[in-house]
């Protein structure tokens, strides 16, 4: 025999999943939300994510090649996902230079400073967003109101959560503010002010179904987050409807859907076991409502996820899967 046989340990077969394929799956799942944001916010929503992805990929390539001096691994597609997710959390009228800074922080600080894919403790897109949120509060909170596809000049305004917070700060009853707030149906369909990707709950849910169908993520994290938010805010609403918004409002407003489905489920920064995922989801849900209700910022999802990201190593350490055979001897 002229050719040498290859010898390796079993298994000798491999599944079809690869990192780039999984990342592509996430991008596909984000497409409905992207389409919705283009529908609501116009052309800006088309090119800002593209630019963001471009910046992310370029920064990752440059940092890997010239700072870390290793083979750039942009092929894995994680930079694309980070760029896209970051763009989805920004208002559509964001200046390009701020976008560039945001992607640099997301990729450079959020991911590459820890060694690249797989090693970052915090969700890079959220690191970028929070950095921008704190550094450029004016630009970051002038949310354009959806005026339809054709309108060129968007009118800016507050998000429903911003309205709520502002109203409560002025001591108004939540019940009285309902007139100013969008209806639940409008929020479900995405007809409200907000960042590019977060407005259309229906589009995000479509993406969620796709992710589940492709088995890219499991149901644990999104479902526990949404359930916890619903139950916790619902409890407060039942106790005191005057000071608290309805649980449905909490579910549909702000970045909760985007955060629960796409941000919290980020592979690298979420727990490894189903049991751990449940703990993590409950933590994010509770923190979100707490920050929304009592915190200084109107929106709490981003901080809740980042805080729980910090707990992930601890969860991985102590929450173990149920081992097979870990039972009392039966019989």
């Amino acid at each position: 025999m002229d050719k040498l046989l290859t010898v390796s340990m079993s298994p000798h077969a491999h599944g079809r999943d690869t990192t780039p394929k999984l990342m592509l799956g996430v991008v596909i799942a984000l497409l409905p939300a992207w389409a919705a944001s283009v529908w609501f916010f116009g052309w800006g929503a088309l090119y800002v994510p593209v630019l963001s992805v471009l910046f992310s990929v370029i920064f990752e390539y440059l940092i890997a090649k010239y700072l870390l001096k290793k083979e750039p691994s942009i092929r894995d597609g994680s930079a694309v996902v980070t760029g896209l997710l970051l763009a989805f959390t920004l208002p559509v009228n964001i200046p390009v230079w701020i976008l560039a800074i945001g992607t640099l922080v997301a990729i450079g600080v959020g991911k590459m400073s820890f060694g690249g894919l797989g090693t970052n403790p915090f969700n890079p897109a959220l690191v970028g967003r929070v950095f921008l949120f704190i550094s450029f509060p004016v630009q970051m909170t002038s949310w354009p109101l959806p005026k339809g596809f054709a309108t060129a000049d968007a009118v800016t305004g507050a998000t429903p959560l911003g309205l709520l917070k502002e109203g409560m700060r002025q001591g108004e009853h939540v019940a009285n503010m309902v007139r100013e707030l969008p209806t639940n149906y409008d929020m479900f369909m995405g007809h409200m002010g907000g960042s590019m990707g977060e407005v259309a709950a229906v589009a995000l849910l479509l993406g969620f179904l796709y992710l589940l169908w492709r088995r890219i993520i499991t149901w644990h994290i999104p479902v526990t987050i949404l359930t916890t938010v619903f139950l916790f805010s619902g409890l407060m609403w039942l106790i005191n409807p005057a000071d608290n918004a309805s649980p449905v409002f909490h579910l549909l407003s702000g970045g909760l859907m985007l955060g629960a489905i796409f941000m919290a489920t980020d592979y690298v920064t979420s727990p490894m076991t189903p049991q751990g995922m449940v703990w993590y989801g409950v933590g994010i849900g509770l923190l979100t409502v707490i920050i929304r209700r009592w915190g200084a910022y109107p929106e709490g999802v981003q901080f809740a996820i980042l805080i729980m990201n910090a707990f992930v190593p601890l969860i991985n350490m102590y929450v173990k899967p149920k081992r097979f055979g870990e039972v009392k001897k039966n019989g």
């Binding site: 894995d76 894919l117 090693t119 690298v268 979420s270 490894m272 076991t273 189903p274 899967p321």
Partner: peptide, 18 residues
């Protein structure tokens, strides 16, 4: 390639290991 911590190995392990 680097581990992306997708947890698929944990979910397919029939013995409940990591």
């Amino acid at each position: 390639e680097p581990c992306i911590r997708c947890a698929k190995c944990v979910s397919v392990c029939p013995m409940g290991l990591e």
